Lab assay of single mutants.
Amino acid sequence: DIEITTNGEEDAKRVIKELQKRNLEYHIEVHGNQWVIKVR
C-alpha cells in the first residue's frame, strides 16, 4: 500500500485524477485539511 498525504481538497483531486487514469483502487481519509489517500 502507498500512502499519499495531500494539502487539502484541490491537491487531493489532482492526485485522484492521476490514480483514476491508472485504474488504481484508493481510499481517502480526511484529517482536518489534510487528505490522506491510501492506494492499494
Rank of each mutant, 00 (worst) to 15 (best):
D1H: 12
I2G: 04
I2P: 03
I2N: 05
I2C: 15
E3P: 03
E3L: 14
I4R: 02
T5E: 06
T5Q: 09
T6N: 02
T6R: 05
T6H: 02
T6M: 11
N7D: 12
N7F: 14
N7A: 09
N7C: 13
N7W: 15
G8W: 06
G8S: 15
E9P: 12
E9I: 13
E9Y: 14
E9W: 15
E10F: 07
E10N: 07
E10M: 08
E10C: 05
E10Q: 09
E10V: 08
D11V: 07
D11Y: 09
D11R: 07
A12F: 11
A12N: 02
K13N: 11
K13E: 08
K13T: 07
R14A: 12
R14L: 12
R14M: 11
R14P: 03
R14S: 07
R14W: 14
V15R: 02
V15T: 03
V15L: 09
V15P: 00
I16W: 02
I16V: 08
I16F: 03
K17G: 08
E18N: 06
E18M: 12
E18F: 12
L19W: 01
L19N: 00
L19F: 03
L19D: 00
L19T: 01
Q20I: 14
Q20W: 04
Q20C: 03
R22K: 12
R22E: 08
R22L: 15
N23A: 08
N23M: 08
L24R: 05
E25H: 13
Y26S: 01
Y26K: 00
Y26W: 08
Y26I: 04
Y26M: 03
Y26L: 04
Y26N: 00
H27K: 12
H27T: 15
H27E: 14
H27G: 06
H27P: 00
I28R: 00
E29M: 08
E29F: 09
E29W: 05
E29R: 05
V30C: 06
V30D: 02
H31M: 10
H31Y: 10
G32P: 03
G32I: 03
G32W: 03
G32D: 07
N33L: 08
N33A: 09
Q34H: 11
Q34P: 01
Q34K: 14
Q34W: 10
Q34A: 08
W35F: 07
V36W: 02
V36D: 01
V36C: 03
I37Y: 00
I37P: 00
I37W: 00
I37T: 00
I37V: 04
K38T: 15
K38F: 13
K38S: 09
K38I: 15
V39K: 00
V39R: 01
V39L: 06
R40V: 15
R40L: 14
R40W: 12
R40G: 09
